[in-house]
């Protein structure tokens, strides 16, 4: 599971409409906002980050968006990132497998 907190900035008068638009996006939830500055904090949730990256790009394209940038990224429970016993696994693959990954691919010899 990856969670990303994103700051969205819009013109203050658009804040409430923008909150509604954002809440209608799948896997996006608005948590905080400040009407006086037009700042909105949303959380995107996904198993894989590329969906979040795509999601952010889509948010950036929404009409009325001044700024949409990431603020915080939580990935402590990402099972792809931290396999069960990571260091042992890395050491175990270090012989043949990693040495093979360093072999010269064909395209370098073309």
């Amino acid at each position: 599971m990856n969670l990303s907190a994103i700051l969205v900035t819009t013109k203050p008068q658009n804040t409430l409409n923008m909150i509604e638009t954002l809440n209608n996006i799948q896997d996006v939830e608005v948590f905080h906002h400040d009407v006086s500055s037009g700042k909105i904090i949303i959380i995107q949730e996904a198993e894989a980050i590329h969906e979040e990256v795509d999601g952010l790009k889509k948010i950036k394209q929404l009409p009325g968006i001044i700024l949409a940038e990431m603020v915080e990224h939580h990935f402590g429970d990402d099972k792809n990132l931290y396999p069960s016993s990571e260091l042992e696994n890395i050491d175990a693959t270090c012989g043949t497998q990693v040495a093979d990954s360093c072999s010269i691919p064909e395209y370098l010899n073309q």
């Binding site: 907190a5 994103i6 700042k39 949730e45």
Partner: peptide, 22 residues
Amino acid sequence: RREFLKSSVAASAAATVGIPLS
């Protein structure tokens, strides 16, 4: 746990960008 984490990550981000928190 996920809901809890989401709300706390959001609160942390809000504090980062200066949105007042309770």
